[in-house]
Design a protein around this nucleic acid. Sequence first.
DNA 1: CTAATTGTTATACGAATGGTATAACATATG
DNA 2: CATATGTTATACCATTCGTATAACAATTAG
Lengths: 122, 122
Amino acid sequence: MFIEIDFNSDEAIYIQLRNQIFLAIATSQIKEGDSLPSVRALADDIGVNMHTVNKAYTTLRQDGFLKVDRRRGAVVSVDVDKMQSIDKMRAYLKPLVARGICKGLSREEFKQLIDDLYDEMK
Amino acid sequence: MFIEIDFNSDEAIYIQLRNQIFLAIATSQIKEGDSLPSVRALADDIGVNMHTVNKAYTTLRQDGFLKVDRRRGAVVSVDVDKMQSIDKMRAYLKPLVARGICKGLSREEFKQLIDDLYDEMK
DNA sequence: CTAATTGTTATACGAATGGTATAACATATG
DNA sequence: CATATGTTATACCATTCGTATAACAATTAG
């Protein structure tokens, strides 16, 4: 699989897992309609407990990235709600932009980062 | 003061505190060289424990936003290291951009958010 | 049909984190 | 000298994170 967990990170495992699934979807390594490994299989693969994977899947489902089909497992299915997505993103970005301004980052430097990351992923 | 804590938030108090200090510096409500209230005074003001404020101040100091002067208390003093700031910001932004791409946000919409937030703060 | 695998849920445990509560110390201020 | 400061230490409680079993219903494979 495409998952790499850093067990020495201060970031929770289920958060790392969630972020890497974001990344895999964004970079089309996983596509809409694809199934993810079962919680047990993935847990076994990356060497963590089943519940840790289940927690990642559950948050992804709640945030509208997965749907669970009894016969197909966890299927990538992204709910798109532009308004809500933008509102959430603004809330996430706000403290980061504030931090950046404090550190003297210009909006051009910020936008360059966005461009770089988009180029890296798409 | 300019601080408002949401005690029902799932975000840790010391994180909310830190973010609002970011915001206050970014919007020039607090300026380089200004002193922040003492940990005890601010704790008393917003109704939390001294140690919670101390934790926020400590992380702000470690991240180069404050310096502590024995005679002047916690003084706003932003260490600027462009390279390091950009590297850190890229790491913070990466999972957010991935999330945005999944939800169908274009890079223009992303940059618009950045512009909005900059306009709001500066 | 049977056995195995699936998602889901429940419970329990240990470790770490978040927040509170006192207390103490050295330094600086009035 | 008395007060307020930043800092540190300890203790306690609740919550979270991760792990460990276990069980259940439903679906799949043989």
